Simulated scan of single mutants.
Amino acid sequence: MKTALSKLNFFEWLGWFGNIILSIGVIPQVVQTYKTHDVASFNWPFLLMWAFGVFFTFIYIVNGDLKSNKRQYPLWLNYLVNIFATFYLCYAKLIFS
């Protein structure tokens, strides 16, 4: 019996791999910010454009997936992690500045 993961083609595996890397990539910054409360190097335009950019892109992806009845879960993972991470960094900038 084949599982859903065994049915993935090369490009789907590539998508999963890339999106997992992108999701993990923001975690060290979040952990460092949480531990040190050092937010001096973050500027508001960057944080807000990143936060709202990933949020709006996630809405776009979900809408497209619902219309096409196909789920791009690697993208969902990446954008959900980045939404939480960037909004935390915005919160940290607000609180620790």
Results as ranks from 00 to 15, higher is better:
93 K>G: 01
26 V>D: 09
92 A>E: 10
61 I>H: 13
60 Y>A: 09
71 R>S: 07
58 F>D: 03
27 I>C: 01
93 K>Q: 01
76 W>F: 14
70 K>Y: 11
39 V>W: 06
11 F>W: 11
2 K>E: 15
97 S>L: 01
72 Q>S: 09
9 N>W: 05
68 S>R: 11
40 A>H: 12
95 I>A: 04
27 I>A: 04
66 L>M: 06
44 W>I: 03
13 W>Q: 07
97 S>E: 07
43 N>Q: 14
20 I>W: 04
78 N>C: 13
5 L>Y: 14
66 L>S: 02
52 F>T: 13
30 V>W: 03
14 L>V: 13
68 S>W: 05
2 K>Q: 14
44 W>T: 08
77 L>E: 02
55 F>Y: 04
16 W>M: 03
49 M>S: 15
64 G>T: 05
26 V>W: 11
27 I>G: 02
94 L>K: 13
57 T>A: 11
92 A>T: 07
2 K>S: 15
52 F>W: 15
26 V>A: 09
53 G>Y: 00
12 E>V: 03
95 I>N: 07
6 S>I: 04
69 N>E: 08
19 N>C: 13
39 V>L: 05
86 T>Y: 01
55 F>W: 03
38 D>C: 06
55 F>E: 00
22 L>C: 10
83 I>L: 08
41 S>I: 05
25 G>D: 11
63 N>L: 15
42 F>N: 00
91 Y>W: 15
34 Y>V: 06
34 Y>T: 08
36 T>C: 07
69 N>G: 02
49 M>V: 14
38 D>R: 14
28 P>V: 03
17 F>N: 03
93 K>H: 00
1 M>R: 10
25 G>S: 15
92 A>W: 12
77 L>C: 07
11 F>H: 04
16 W>Q: 00
94 L>P: 00
10 F>E: 15
60 Y>T: 08
91 Y>C: 02
85 A>N: 01
95 I>F: 14
84 F>R: 03
28 P>D: 03
65 D>L: 11
7 K>R: 15
11 F>D: 09
54 V>F: 02
78 N>M: 11
12 E>L: 07
47 L>S: 03
28 P>T: 08
72 Q>W: 06
51 A>Q: 02
57 T>L: 15
83 I>G: 01
75 L>D: 04
26 V>M: 10
87 F>L: 11
60 Y>K: 09
89 L>K: 10
97 S>R: 05
93 K>A: 02
70 K>S: 14
63 N>P: 01
14 L>K: 14
6 S>G: 03
48 L>Y: 12
51 A>D: 04
49 M>K: 10
69 N>A: 09
2 K>N: 15
33 T>S: 12
97 S>I: 01
78 N>R: 10
6 S>D: 07
61 I>A: 12
57 T>N: 15
50 W>D: 04
9 N>Y: 05
53 G>F: 02
73 Y>D: 06
87 F>V: 07
